[in-house]
Amino acid sequence: MGKLLEVKNLTTQFKVDKTKIIKAVDNSSFYIDEGETLAIVGESGSGKSVTALSVMQLVPDPPGKIAGGEILFQGKDLLKYSKEEMRAVRGGDISMIFQEPMTSLNPVFTIGRQLTESIMLHLKLNKRDAEDRAVEFLRKLQIPDPVRRMKTYPHQHSGGMRQRVMICMALSCNPKLLIADEPTTALDVTIQAQILNLIVKLRDEEKTAVMFITHDLGVVADVAHRAIVMYAGSIMEMGPVREMFRNPLHPYTQGLLGAIPRLSTPRGQKLYTIPGIVPDLSQLPKGCPFCTRCDQCMDVCHQKKPPLRRLEDGREVRCFKIERGEEIG
């Protein structure tokens, strides 16, 4: 399988005030194969959503700006596309689901209008055919009575139902890549499981590649083939989910996995936490961004930022503890 999306050295920065610029995504490279699901994991502010928005070129500008790198989609650099060319990609070949189902649908238009809009635009269908297709997809997403729903407004639906409509909107134009930015975070747990199952089912049916952004490692284990762990704008570790969970290489990944409460944890034992808080992006430590919270921190970690290394098995990690493999940036 070929690479569907290849991001090379992406740097996205935000202007905080007249003199201060922060790098929300710092020199990050990764790829997604056709039909593959890649999870991007990290805490709030780690740059995972900005990475997604950068691919879509929806970073609010100003203050945000893609400062460098390449975003190759099917071999072509999206950053070199004109506005019109990029619009054709957005919602067509690459579509996106957002975190907030309650506010992501336009309150003054019917579900039907919002669904058919992109179908008519990207698949060049007339209104009636677009409506048929929208109804078909609503049915696929197990939304009861889809014909009637088309005429309803977002406020008449629950959060889970609205997120289904968002997914329907994102998938109805046969995207090759679906970017799901924390699609289940705002939903309660039972609905979360339903929505995840739907995404996985449709992904398998339509053979869509998925970039799945989440901070929930349980979700990662359920849906993703490979995962990237981000911290303060940098990729810390990348590898197949199975191996990463079995043998996390980076202290941060180890910390994240250690922080998951387990049924086997003895009663009364305190749950593990990573000490400290995420550093302010404008005041990153000089060396490794994680050094202030790392329990295996060495002197060199304070001096300079560790390079990302690719190991023999293809996993990547950014830590001085790992000295195998080749430096890739």
Partner: peptide, 14 residues
């Protein structure tokens, strides 16, 4: 600045 405007842009609307 609302989310649904971002959604509209993400759909590829002009």
């Amino acid at each position: 600045r609302q989310d649904y405007i971002r959604t509209a842009r993400a759909k590829g609307l002009s």
